[in-house]
Amino acid sequence: MGWMFDFLNSSIGKKIQMAITGVLLCLFLIIHLIGNLFLFAGPHAFNTYVETLSAVRPIVRSIELILTLIFLGHIFNGIRLIIANRQATSVKYAVNKARENSTIVSRTMGITGSVIFIFLAVHLSTIWYTFQLEHGGGKFFDIVMSNNIGFGNLIVTIFYMIAMFLLGFHLRHGFQSAFQTFGWNHTKYKSIIEVVAVFFWLILPVGFLMIPLYFGLLGGGN
């Protein structure tokens, strides 16, 4: 098992952990967005969807546990990388024209990731937690639209929109970066990965962003 520990702690091992957990989280986002789209079908459809999930709670709980481990792995490794990379760099350059050799999205993964983490903490402690307290009753749609923790609150709406915008930023670099880490940088596959990446960094975050935009700002659902 010693080799496994060495492998996971090596610079490339840490990158691979980041990439695997990142791609798995991307897959989770697809499932989450499909669920969220029931909001557009009205209160009845959304409430029925959440109640169906509540009916298979043991399965949902096991998935949530796995998801938590993936999230923690991604966050823990990210923090570890940031600290190690700070230690590897000595004095900062007085003049550094980084924008001439790299994209802003690739240089700000720690910042966008941190904002998404804050979003995650807020989202779990408000919407997710309140959902857990409800047992049937069909109030789930109303919770999402409520004036304190939901899209009835303008601050919540704007915060959700900023977070989803930055999620797009994070995935703009993160998704294709994962495949570079797996070693799939080849002229044959590069264009395929770039096309698939558009789904993850553009379509998916826009899909999530539509919800606070429609229900919070444009007054949809009333």
């Binding site: 610079s11 990158k15 190690a84 590897a88 940088n185």
Partner: peptide
């Protein structure tokens, strides 16, 4: 440090070595 795939190295390499080598 640990590579985070910014590809700044490829852009600044005087011999224009590709990050495909990193992959």
């Amino acid at each position: 440090g640990n590579c985070t795939n910014t590809y700044a190295c490829e852009a600044e390499c005087p011999k224009e070595i590709s990050v495909a080598h990193i992959a």
